[in-house]
Design a protein around this nucleic acid. Structure first.
Lengths: 167, 167
DNA sequence: GTCTAGTTTTGAGTTATTCAAAACACCACT
DNA sequence: AGTGGTGTTTTGAATAACTCAAAACTAGAC
C-alpha cells in the first residue's frame, strides 16, 4: 500500500493508442477497442452488442464508423471471409493469416512465416504493385472433423453458419 | 469440304459438361456458362445482364441458382474479394490465385506454383483438416500505379469501385 | 471558457443475396 | 412419340450487412 497523493492521471494505453494514431479519444472508440480485446474475431453486430453493455445508447452506425476509423489507422484489422460478415480483430501488424472452418465457421489465427506483408509474391505480378498477400485456409476444425457426420463434408461455401444441425 | 450426310447430332461441349456433372441441361445453365466463357471475373448481376441478351426472361434468381449449382458441382469457381460482390469464373481445377487492384478493382489471375489445393500449409494447423489455401494479392494494377494521383494510395479496402474520380 | 473540426446519433436507403410456393421443362421410361 | 416425376425456374417477397446524410454533440486546441 502506498497511500500517497495520486496526481498522476492514469494512463490508459487504449486511449493513448487512439490518440497516437491521430484520432480523438471518445467513449465509443475505447469501448470498441476494449470489446475487441476480449474477442478475437467478431463481426460489427457482435461488437455492437458488447459495447452496449458498457456504453448503452451507442448506435450500430457508430460502431461501424469506429471500426472503419480504427481500421483506417491500422489499430484494427478487418477480414472478410466468404459467406460471413466482415470480422474485426486487434491483432495487427504481423500479417498473420486465418484458418476458417468451412463447417462451423470457427476462425483461428496462424502465424505468417515471413511476418511482413506481402509474405508471398506471385511468379507473374502482371505489373501490379503488390502490397499484401492475404491467405485464408479453409478446412474442417478439429471438432467438426471429429464428427463422423462431417467426414465427407464438401467445400460448401454457403454453410458458414455456426449452427449445429439436428439429424 | 465433305458434303456428306450429317446425322451425328452436334455435340455441345457445354451441355456435355453440365450433364456429366450430374445436372440437367437447361437453357439458363448453358447461357450462364457461355457468358462466363467471355468474361473472366464477373458478379451475378453482370452474368444476369449478359444472359438476358441471348435468353430474355431469365430471372436474376435463376442466375443465382444456376451459379450456385454450377459452383456446387465444380464447373464454376466463386471468389469473394472484400468489398465486392461475389465473382464467378470458369477457370477451375487449377487452384489459381487472384491479384486485385485496391484502387480500381481490376482482377487478374495468377498461376499457382503448386497447382493442387492446398498449395500452402500453415506451420501450425491447429488441428484443422485443411483442403484449400486461398491466396489473394492486393495492390495497384499497372494502370492505377502509373497514375500519379494514386502514388500514395493506401490500403483502402472500402474503395473497390471501378470509378474514375474527377479532381 | 470558447470555438471548431471531427464524431456520433437519428433516420432512412441500398445492395447483394436468400427464401418459398407455384409453374414449368428435362429426360428416363413406356 | 407420349407421359410422369423430379429437378429447375419464375414470381414475389424478405433479409442481412452495410452506407449515406443531416443534425446534435464533444474532445481538445486556443
Amino acid at each position: 500500500m502506498t497511500p500517497t497523493r495520486n496526481d498522476a492521471p492514469p494512463v490508459d494505453p487504449l486511449a493513448t493508442s487512439i490518440r497516437d494514431a491521430g484520432l480523438k479519444v471518445t467513449a465509443p472508440r475505447v469501448a470498441v477497442l476494449t470489446a475487441l480485446a476480449d474477442m478475437p474475431h467478431v463481426d460489427a453486430d457482435t461488437v455492437f452488442r458488447a459495447v452496449r453493455e458498457t456504453l448503452p445508447g451507442t448506435s450500430l452506425q457508430a460502431v461501424y464508423g469506429v471500426l472503419g476509423a480504427l481500421t483506417g489507422v491500422g489499430l484494427v484489422r478487418r477480414f472478410d471471409p466468404a459467406g460471413s460478415p466482415a470480422l474485426f480483430e486487434r491483432r495487427v501488424g504481423d500479417n498473420h493469416h486465418h484458418l476458417v472452418c468451412s463447417h462451423c465457421g470457427t476462425i483461428r489465427d496462424v502465424d505468417c512465416v515471413i511476418g511482413a506483408a506481402p509474405c508471398l509474391t506471385p511468379v507473374d505480378t502482371a505489373g501490379f504493385r503488390i502490397h499484401t498477400a492475404e491467405v485464408t485456409f479453409w478446412g474442417l476444425c478439429a471438432e467438426c472433423a471429429a464428427d463422423p457426420r462431417n467426414s465427407s463434408d464438401p467445400i460448401d461455401s454457403t454453410t458458414h453458419t455456426h449452427s449445429e444441425e439436428t439429424p
